[in-house]
Design a binder for these strands. Structure first.
Lengths: 192, 192
DNA sequence: CGAGTTTTGAACTGACCGATACACAACCAA
DNA sequence: TTGGTTGTGTATCGGTCAGTTCAAAACTCG
């Protein structure tokens, strides 16, 4: 009943996400977003309301994709220990492109703001913890993780380890150094 | 031979550091810095040249103080394991005031820029690694750390763990959760 | 007392910020 | 074709950005 959109909204969100990921929230101007998406100001504001709302969309896009990939590994084959090792491997490889993690970068830059962005960050944390706790529970049962471990503790430890790996990536650590960290972390929770 | 300064330069750097710590680099305006320091624009620019130069001073102020406190603990009494535990305890307590760590926040927001700020961040990483490696070496000798550990590996692991704790603090983790993470991390390197 | 040097405050610079106004183009349903 | 609705491009909004200018103020030293 009206003029249709000339652009793919999802593709625009993806482009905006890349821009925010590269430069951070504050340092990315609306002009940068127009250039990245290839859209005019009007289109951006018509479709996404504000810079912050677009950032929220971009962040949701990122967390959804990232959580999905992580869940695919954790729901896949192998012992819990093997699956957790695989997750840490992907974190290491991703961390070598030295843009870090959009979630960690945002947490560090903005903290937990009292709006939907903060809520999305909290939700991402909770979902990660739940996934890791479930896998840890399985690991204690299948014997690949140390006996007597509290799944919730393991989840907290894994999320912290991943966050640390991401920061180490931003510090410029090498693949070998990151593997060293991951191996030591795993040695704390793996059976034997 | 000329008009003397009406303010304490170190105190001004300290105030600027607090402002940058609270809001991040980009979100802190020169006006914020004037308010925080109590100085006029001219005085700020006369004394510190530019926002970035003042940030570099503030960052140096922070890293010097933080490294000093850490070194005091690591050079103190007790086994290496006890000293490392004490360091992690201070990180946990500091992480509960949810502003995180200025170094980690800056790394996440700016990455490793190709200027003095980036150089200062690299230097801070190197100094931390050196301190931790030395303590780890002592720990292997005094028997408080697991036998056969490479001190450099332990240093990388500890710095990553601390970075992770800092991010977990920004996520809103409780003191208990942070202690859980630190205890699991220590279990990977402590003897027995 | 000045002469010389530096700090300070206030006004100001051009550029850019996020966001909007508005005319018109593009489309759909009738 | 036409009326209603939405997308798009251009120009622009007031405000703030980092940084500068400049004259008056405040000091030291001769």
């Amino acid at each position: 009943m009206a003029r249709p959109r000339e652009f793919d909204e999802t593709a625009a969100v993806e482009s905006a996400m890349q821009a925010f990921w590269d430069r951070g929230y504050e340092a990315t101007s609306t002009q940068d977003l127009c250039r990245a998406t290839g859209l005019g100001r009007s289109s951006v504001y018509n479709a996404f309301t504000s810079k912050r709302a677009l950032f929220r969309r971009a962040l949701a896009h990122y967390t959804t994709r990232e959580l999905g990939k992580r869940k695919a590994i954790l729901d896949g084959p192998g012992t819990a220990a093997e699956r957790l090792t695989a997750v840490l491997d992907t974190v290491i490889e991703a961390g070598l492109g030295n843009r870090g993690c959009l979630v960690v970068n945002t947490l560090a830059e903005l903290g937990l703001p009292n709006d939907e962005v903060g809520a999305a960050l909290r939700s991402d944390t909770a979902q990660n913890l739940a996934m890791f706790a479930e896998c840890a529970r399985e690991g204690v049962l299948d014997g690949s993780l140390r006996d007597g471990l509290d799944p919730a503790d393991v989840a907290e430890f894994l999320l912290s380890t991943i966050s640390g790996l991401r920061v180490m990536g931003r510090r410029g650590s090498s693949r070998e150094a990151l593997h060293t960290v991951a191996d030591l972390a795993l040695s704390a929770i793996l059976a034997h």
